[in-house]
Nucleic acid binder design. Structure first.
Lengths: 217, 217
DNA sequence: ATATAAATTTAGGCAAATCTAAAAATTTGT
DNA sequence: ACAAATTTTTAGATTTGCCTAAATTTATAT
């Protein structure tokens, strides 16, 4: 598989709820910053190889095999991210681009040994689950902070938006995975939230709250 | 730089004594398992970019800039090899192919952090020197076992042939870097050698002796 | 329901990296 | 030194992945 093929598979997986929902070529093109016509070409090739199901004008879904491939790439991406943060001391906003390259390295033995070296991590630095060798992962029961009732108490376990900008914002405001959070009050006027995080009281916008996952305890 | 460009630069470096001696397109093609005509095309492109000096029919040498690029790639290759052996527990005959892929990952920060993580190693698992950030490395004063006088005493510090076959042979015969070796006798009939390695006495062919580097003490 | 808008595909083209076959330059052997 | 052998380059083709522009299909809005 070429890098480009792998990247298309990944895009279809992410856009189509694990590849199950049909995705438009336009959506893929936008995500990948290419043109819809280029996506059409590639999708035809992937269909040839039985990685996707494709009917003209009707969007694309991954085949069973395609899902397997996608999970393999995601596993590699997330394991490398753990490596970069835990072992090489990168911060969580720097690792995505490098992992985009590393995820294409071909060696099953390498990824198995990396997994062992990292002690079989279950989540990447952004709280996203890491599929195991067989593509299985537990999708932790987590909720967006913006959607839990007032007085809920839990632990911050992930981010929805893992853009560098958002991650840096969190760093600046000392919000990190593992922090204990209580939702104190919802401001109906602008849908912002007052929360207790650790032992501080903070006021966060709806946009922030809509991108933080917490696990209710 | 594309992977293919980087691979050509590397080949020219290795074939031309660090890029200083003119290399034929044929030699490059043979090493890279492509055709001479493909090499000609690529060499023209590299000349355009001032990575090599090239005169039709007269072979190729690296420019100063080309040498720098080559050393950067070799640094990455060898650091990744150390990582694979030291951290992921690969054996020294398995790492070359994987490092061939990893050497193309683009991130200066990554390689600096990897270097730090590995504690600034000076040699790769085959005893080859690792250039530092500025491309400087000490070319350890080592000699081929086949070329030192009888009764020389030293430490095995590297291999010339790092093919998987040779490395596996050494493993099987319990010859490893760091072993203390004394050349006991040279068999003039077939140019083989009797050596003491650790506390064993061994008889090794000239071919083996011609591919082991030792550092005389 | 149908015209208009939007999405998608097709057609044709381009650049990179490779190849084969033929032409040109260099090297070699006597 | 010169013909033959070898090496190297050129010319032209192929594949991959991408593009633009035009055609086609599907969706939307009155």
């Amino acid at each position: 598989m070429t890098h480009s093929e792998e990247n298309h598979i990944k895009a279809i997986f992410h856009l189509g709820n694990k590849g199950t929902v049909a995705v438009s070529t336009n959506a893929i093109a936008e995500l990948m910053e290419t043109k819809p016509s280029s996506v059409t070409d590639m999708v035809k090739k992937l269909a040839e190889k039985d990685l996707v199901h494709y009917k003209k004008y009707q969007g694309v879904t991954l085949s069973e095999f395609g899902v397997k491939v996608a999970l393999g790439i995601i596993r590699k991406h997330r394991l490398w991210e753990v490596f970069l943060v835990e072992k090489l001391d990168f911060s969580w906003d720097e690792v995505h681009e490098i992992a985009e390259q590393l995820e294409h390295i071909k060696s099953e033995k390498l990824i198995d040994k990396l997994d062992t070296f990292l002690d079989h991590p279950k989540f990447d630095p952004h709280g996203d689950p890491i599929p195991d060798k067989n593509g299985i992962f537990k999708t932790a029961d987590r909720k967006l902070l913006s959607e839990v009732p007032v007085n809920s108490n839990g632990i911050c376990v992930g981010v929805k938006d893992s853009s560098s900008a958002f991650l840096k914002f969190l760093d600046k405001n000392k919000i990190a995975l593992g922090d204990v959070i209580t939702v104190l009050e919802k401001e109906e006027f602008d849908n912002s939230f007052y929360i207790k995080i650790g032992d501080r009281r903070e006021h966060i916008s709806n946009q922030i709250a809509s991108n933080l996952f917490i696990k209710i305890s």
